[in-house]
Design a protein around this nucleic acid. Structure first.
Lengths: 123, 123
DNA sequence: CGTTATCATTTACACGTGTAAACATAACTC
DNA sequence: GAGTTATGTTTACACGTGTAAATGATAACG
């Protein structure tokens, strides 16, 4: 089963650094999300059930490690959006952001670079 | 409240052409989604409650029209993903698809064109 | 050791979602 | 006009989600 948005917030912490204890995770997300301890524990348990994280006992507590790779999650989510909204094609997505004035100068520069590199690989 | 994925499928039909009757919508999505009449009616009612569509009586039936614009929905969804997964920046998103080999030749050509046009606007 | 502090696990609960069945109502048919 | 047909409206129900409170277990403390 897919992981939910709240669960992804927890995963994010683990993707930045792992393994971590529930306490450490709470310390990071508690303030920003306004979550209590029980909330984080629940989310961790659901992630365990979904095999998205692994827990290893360390004395009295557990150390949590991601099993689902961020890259995989990002791929799924991105592809989902692309397929649902843009016919599975990237250019229309970028065009959308362009129309929306959501392309920063930096974005544009990076896109140019990316295209140049693709060119180089080509032949 | 945000519209759900199933609801978006119904919206899609209306975005392609409106107004439409529930029957017409069912004819389009029933086969592909395997939905019964009741399902489509429920979704339409939820969309009404969410003010995403408008219904106008036409004799014994209703004609449904989208109130929420596709462009608006697409923007919300896209921005959501961009912010959650790519720090709100477009270039990393495109880089992701590039690494994933999800850029078709057509995409690349279109992106080039897009960048050229942006250049033209610039000065 | 019995008590407290520390974690984890279980249970809870309201709300949204997917998916209809049941029910209501008005029009159409014989 | 009573029964069937076509629609829409209400109700249902299991499951996921966000958000914990309650409970259980275990190690540390006095």
């Amino acid at each position: 089963m897919a992981i939910s948005e709240a669960e992804a917030v927890v995963m994010d912490v683990l993707w930045r650094e792992a393994p971590r204890t529930a306490e450490e995770i709470l310390a990071e997300v508690g303030p920003t999300q306004g979550w209590q301890e029980g909330t984080v524990k629940s989310l961790l348990n659901r992630l365990l059930r979904k095999k998205a994280v692994h827990a290893e006992r360390d004395g009295r507590r557990y150390l949590y490690t991601p099993l689902l790779a961020r890259e995989q999650y990002v791929s799924q989510e991105s592809k989902g959006l692309l397929d649902r909204l843009f016919g599975g094609r990237v250019a229309p997505l970028v065009a959308h952001f362009s129309e929306q004035r959501k392309l920063s100068k930096k974005d544009i520069a990076e896109l140019r670079k990316l295209l140049r590199e693709l060119d180089d690989e080509q032949h």
